[in-house]
């Protein structure tokens, strides 16, 4: 079954759906109209650019180019997580990158080798979208975990200091903060996984069905992807915190002020 294409004019009609919500936001003086318009503009531009460069990458389908593109995505995602939470690149970029890279390589490798089992491991048509989905969710998890771990240590250091003065190492003293950060990182994903198929129809299976895949085929991809996303989000967030923690405290166990930009 051919997927009916959307030409630019058809796409423009979809922007009509924005008219009523933006008008209401303006009328109710919510203060978000210009931000929403800017976000839609940026989204359109970014996705068009992505369409161009991904189209080019897919046409070339060079293994080195595909891996290079994934590396760029990983570096950008890693930096974005730190930038969003105003955390130090100098102290935390390399250890969080190490954690994210390790988990990304293992999860993507398992998914491509054992789940997709496509003859060409480096085929851009599979490697980049799947890698992109994993990285996008990993970045979200990193943002939440790093913000809660370091933010809580700064806002509410009492538990940390109490434990430190009772003989805990910085790792032992910060354990409650790590546990809470991990709970907050994965709970939204657990909640959405629990309702998928009842409340929501995820994007991956939607796209596959639009492309002609039968539902039973599409859901298998979706199940595998949801599991891979949960695993990579959890493990990448945990390793980002654990690896960065080693550089975030000084020799006295004090959180370095320069962790925060």
């Amino acid at each position: 079954m051919d997927v009916p294409g959307i030409d630019n004019l058809s796409l423009l009609w979809s922007y009509l759906l924005l008219v009523i919500p933006l008008w209401l936001a303006w009328k109710w003086e919510l203060g978000i109209t210009s931000r929403a318009l800017l976000a839609v503009f940026r989204m359109t531009l970014q996705l068009y650019l992505m369409g161009f460069y991904l189209g080019w990458i897919f046409r070339l389908n060079s293994p080195w180019l595909n891996l290079g593109w994934l590396a760029v995505m990983l570096l950008v995602a890693n930096g974005a997580a730190l930038r969003q939470r105003r955390l130090s690149y100098r102290l935390l970029f390399l250890p969080t990158l190490a954690g994210n890279l390790l988990v990304f390589v293992v999860t993507l490798g398992v998914f491509m080798l054992l789940v997709v089992r496509h003859a060409d491991f480096f085929d851009a048509r599979f490697l980049i979208p799947i890698g992109g989905m994993l990285l996008g969710n990993t970045m979200r998890g990193n943002i939440i975990a790093l913000e809660h771990f370091y933010g809580s240590l700064r806002r509410d250091p009492g538990t940390y200091v109490t434990r430190l003065l009772l003989g805990a190492t910085p790792a032992e003293a910060s354990q409650p903060y790590l546990h809470e950060a991990m709970r907050l990182t994965v709970m939204p994903h657990i909640a959405s996984v629990a309702t998928v198929g009842i409340v929501s129809m995820p994007g991956m299976m939607t796209g596959q069905m639009l492309a002609g895949e039968l539902p039973m085929g599409a859901i298998k991809y979706q199940i595998a992807m949801l599991i891979a996303v949960f695993s990579s989000m959890f493990l990448a967030a945990a390793l980002s915190v654990l690896f960065s923690r080693a550089r975030a405290f000084d020799a006295y166990g004090r959180l370095k002020p320069e962790v925060f930009r």
Partner: peptide
């Protein structure tokens, strides 16, 4: 820090029960 005890105005017990709080330091290496 093994010799000194720092007691503040609002000590944090750091556990759900009093027994857990008293034995908290003994969970550290």
């Amino acid at each position: 820090r093994g010799r000194i005890a720092f007691i503040g105005q609002e000590p944090l017990l750091g556990a759900e029960t009093v027994r857990g709080a008293l034995l908290l330091p003994f969970t550290f290496r």
